[in-house]
Amino acid sequence: MTSSTPLRTPDATDLARVAVFAALIVVLGLPGSFPVFGGVPITAQTLGVMLAGAILGPWLGALSATVVLALVAIGLPLLAGGRGGFGVFLGPTAGYALGWILGAMVIGLIVHAGNRRPVWWRTAIAMVAGGVVAIYALGIPVQSLVTRLPLGETALTSLVFVPGDLLKAAIATIVVTLLVRAYPRGFRRQWRVAPVEQPVPA
């Protein structure tokens, strides 16, 4: 059984990449948002979280999302619709925002499982598991608590997000798959190469 690459201390290049993806998450919020039931907006920022987890890996991807949320907490209006301030983390969107950290981590762990080269089907699974399921797993209970709606009713109303999130997952999968082929150095990691089977002598 092979082990994955051990954790290493981030260097200046890693931190620069974290900053770039934090900026990407912010930029994807510039088009604005579309509020739906319960006051939770539909935004493109989750797409940035998906790409961060897949390209940077679980820890740096989660760090990029954490940087954005930390800046939001101190008052910068970096979320879609120009929202910012600690009050964001007391509202119905709090769980979804914090879910970005978990989502990026889950995506990175699945995409780079076993330190293998990303493939489209594993990337697609990662985008759904981390970019949708993990974020909803934190977002729905918090939204239910803040809005005082039953958990089942909150989960049901959250289904309105699913088509858009699946579309973002598909886009992220395509982008990552193309990037693996065109610019694998962008992932800044060494992938384990599967051993070549030797022919059995007759």
Results as ranks from 00 to 15, higher is better:
112 H>I: 04
112 H>L: 13
113 A>Q: 15
113 A>M: 14
115 N>D: 15
116 R>H: 09
117 R>S: 03
117 R>V: 03
117 R>Q: 04
118 P>T: 12
119 V>E: 12
119 V>Y: 01
119 V>N: 14
120 W>F: 10
121 W>L: 14
121 W>M: 09
122 R>L: 10
122 R>P: 08
122 R>W: 10
125 I>D: 03
125 I>N: 08
125 I>L: 15
125 I>P: 03
127 M>C: 02
128 V>K: 13
128 V>S: 06
128 V>D: 01
129 A>D: 01
130 G>Y: 03
131 G>T: 05
131 G>L: 12
132 V>Y: 10
133 V>W: 06
133 V>T: 09
133 V>K: 04
133 V>H: 04
133 V>D: 04
134 A>K: 01
134 A>T: 05
135 I>E: 02
135 I>L: 08
135 I>K: 02
136 Y>R: 05
136 Y>N: 03
136 Y>W: 10
137 A>V: 07
138 L>R: 03
138 L>N: 03
138 L>V: 08
139 G>K: 05
139 G>L: 09
140 I>H: 10
141 P>S: 08
142 V>W: 15
142 V>K: 09
143 Q>A: 13
143 Q>F: 05
144 S>T: 07
144 S>C: 05
145 L>D: 00
145 L>W: 15
146 V>G: 01
146 V>W: 11
146 V>F: 11
147 T>F: 09
147 T>P: 01
147 T>Q: 14
147 T>L: 12
147 T>I: 10
